[in-house]
Amino acid sequence: MFRIRCPYCGERDQIEFGYGGEAHIARPREPEAISDAQWADYVFMRTNTKGLFAERWVHSAGCRRWFNALRDTATDRFVATYVIGEAPPLPVTQGADDGAPVEEDAEAAADLAGGGRP
């Protein structure tokens, strides 16, 4: 059972929160302009990080607001929480795992996808 610092309410027990998976995955701005593979990558593929991981939480039984957290998935230590729209306060290695599909034109895809993964 974690204690999580909601950026709006302060420290609360995990029972008040919902989990939202990996953070900083922007929804493509023009879904119709990208390939099936690129769209599938956005919808289905997530990083499985051991170590520092940027993830989304929602204070569902409190202020109902979404925010991001940096958690070490190996130790369950929360390094920081920060509001939506902010960059992670520490660099994270997400999006670099070998399991992600290799995109032929990653830059162009990132453009179309509104930034995609950081």
Partner: peptide, 13 residues
């Protein structure tokens, strides 16, 4: 309701 909030807050604030 959670779905609406999620998209409003995280995609279209």
């Amino acid at each position: 309701l959670a779905w609406l909030e999620e998209y409003h807050q995280t995609e279209w604030p």
